[in-house]
Nucleic acid binder design. Structure first.
Length: 433
RNA sequence: UGCUCAGUAGUUCAGUGGUAGAAUAAUUGACUGUUAAUCAAGAGGUCGUAGGUUCGAAUCCUACCUGAGCAGCCA
């Protein structure tokens, strides 16, 4: 008799097996008991028939509590009455760990209560599906960049200076010096690109912003590729290829999870078709003005989330918005060759109201220009000498972008709020558990 | 940080000045295919905290605490 995982049930039809499980719910009558089981790979049902088992086993089946752990021993059957398609007819139960008064019942709960019990909430079906899809996106990210010839190049998490000003950085100490938690690895990725051509980082990012919206986390994971000898247009091609690859991977490997979430695969299918539309910032402003719904939209202003939602809905698939005003973008973006007021950059807006999931640009290569921009931004030139060296010693055209993992997870799973897209979200006023 | 809303049983909520309620979970019992099972029973409360108004406050007032939604900022 083999010990197996629930997800592998179909390979063991009519075989006797043993599975380590937790009880999620139970229904019983005088002569039959239905145990809802999970083992971290899937959810299915065990059936205990009184006339087929010992008195002790049936008594155990009636006694087990929610989230009690045990081994069940029995025979796998294919059964159309089961949502999973298979179930186990239990012959014997070996209790492992008791459970009493499990706080999360099968009924409704509020967000605050669930977040206070996040360590247990993660066991429930929706959370299982979301975290599994997150894991698939991580797997697919490594697979994609490996396939495309990128080197994984880790940026430091402790930094001595602030790429975009210190107000939104977490301050800490580095022995007797000030230090900050990384809010972006991008500048370091540029050094990596000059050393190894195509690189990407994938790590945690910290923003001490007092943001309190459905699309912000204080701590989140970001993927930041950077490519030497690459102009913006080629970067956009990599970006859309990457996004389509992520969506396709979920379609290929997470059908069960999508079903648990009630996420329609047909909708996702649409996002695998390339290319994604590209419109300029100028055109986006015009579109918004023509719609009549945004009287406050003016050239020079950044888009708020209602504007982003409108634009993405308009195209019904992810859309690139190109070349934003220089004044609202960071210092390192390459100025437009014929226009002084915009930079070579693009945001990718996800459809269905999920907003910006990628921000990227071609990087400025001119030392004098960068020095001026650093000064204008009120940053200390001394902190950026190493960065300017990248331009002093064999500078090349290069481009890169950043993808917020949790935003991608939220969009692909169709979740309402970003807080469920990471196991333990760090939110304004929440650092427990 | 601003605006709006909310804190009552383990949980989700009703109760808007006069004895603290429902559903559900948990507990006990019945039931041979249940899918949020069903049926029955008993049990479960410092009404967010502090102060005030009143004969009387869960209810009205003030302050504070906590959370949610939206906005700004961004990925």
């Amino acid at each position: 008799m083999e010990t197996i995982s629930i997800v592998d049930s179909k390979k063991y039809v009519d075989k006797k097996v043993k599975i380590g499980v937790w009880l999620t719910n139970k229904r019983s009558s005088g002569k039959i008991a239905f145990l809802q089981l999970r083992d971290g790979t899937a959810y299915f049902q065990g059936v205990v028939v009184k006339s087929d088992v010992s008195e002790e086993t049936f008594a155990l089946a009636k006694e087990v509590k929610q989230e009690e752990s045990m081994y069940v021993i029995g025979t796998i059957h294919e059964d159309a009455r089961s949502h999973f398609g298979y179930e186990i007819e239990i012959e014997d139960i070996e209790p492992v760990g008791a459970s009493k008064d499990y706080p999360i019942s099968p009924k409704d709960h509020g967000t605050d209560f669930l977040m206070d019990h996040r360590h247990l909430w993660l066991r429930s079906k929706r959370q299982f599906a979301i975290i599994k899809i997150r894991s698939e996106l991580i797997r697919a990210t490594y697979a994609f960049f490996h396939k495309e010839g990128f080197v994984k190049f880790d940026a430091p998490i402790l930094t001595g200076s602030a790429p975009e000003g210190t107000t939104e950085l977490f301050h800490t100490e580095y022995f007797d010096k000030d230090a900050y938690l990384s809010q972006s690895g991008q500048l370091y990725e540029e050094a990596g690109a000059m050393a190894y051509g195509k690189v990407f980082s994938f790590g945690p990012t910290f923003r001490a912003e007092k943001s309190k919206t459905r699309r912000h986390l204080i701590e989140f994971w970001m993927i930041e590729p950077e490519m030497a000898f690459t102009h913006q247009e080629e970067s956009l091609e990599i970006q859309e290829k990457y996004i389509a690859y992520l969506v396709q991977s979920v379609l290929d490997n997470c059908q069960y999870e999508l079903k648990l979430l009630g996420r329609d695969p047909k909708v996702l299918q649409r996002y695998t078709k390339l290319p994604y539309p590209r419109i300029s910032y100028d055109e986006a402003i015009e579109l918004l003005q023509k719609s009549g719904d945004f009287p406050d939209v003016k050239w020079g202003k950044d888009f708020g989330s209602p504007e982003e939602t409108y634009l993405a809905e308009h195209f019904n698939k992810p859309v690139f918005v190109l070349n934003y005003p220089k004044a609202i973008k960071p210092f390192y973006m390459k100025p437009h060759p014929t226009r002084k007021d915009v930079v070579i950059c693009a945001d990718l807006l996800a459809p269905e109201g999920y907003g910006e999931i990628i921000g990227g640009s071609e990087r400025a290569t001119d030392v004098a220009y960068l020095e001026k921009q650093i000064e204008k931004a009120g940053l200390d030139k001394a902190d950026y000498q190493w960065y300017l060296d990248l331009r002093r010693y064999g500078s090349v055209p290069h481009s890169g972008f950043g993808l917020g993992l949790e935003r991608a997870v939220t969009w692909i799973t169709g979740e309402e709020h970003i807080r469920e897209a990471i196991p333990f979200p760090r939110l304004l006023n929440r650092i427990y558990p």
